[in-house]
């Protein structure tokens, strides 16, 4: 009975549908924002070849 109620709740709230719900809204906030102020950057040579 409880299980049925839970399923009902999940369906009505729209949570069910994926095992996890990370990054499912437009307001996801787990990106790193660039800094407001200048930060001291270590001067190093970067040799990488990254593909998106």
């Amino acid at each position: 009975m409880i299980k049925k109620c839970l399923l009902g709740l999940l369906l009505t709230t729209g949570i069910l549908g994926s095992s996890f719900m990370f990054n499912q809204t437009e307001t996801a906030g787990d990106e790193i924002f660039p800094p407001l102020l200048d930060e001291v950057e270590p001067e190093v040579e970067v040799i990488v070849d990254l593909k998106v």
Binding site: E31, I32, E41, E43, V44, E45, V46, L50
Partner: peptide, 13 residues
């Protein structure tokens, strides 16, 4: 050679 910026870009991707 801005490493912290590269970190941020990769994290956000």
């Amino acid at each position: 050679g801005y490493t912290s910026i590269l970190h941020t870009i990769e994290h956000n991707l």
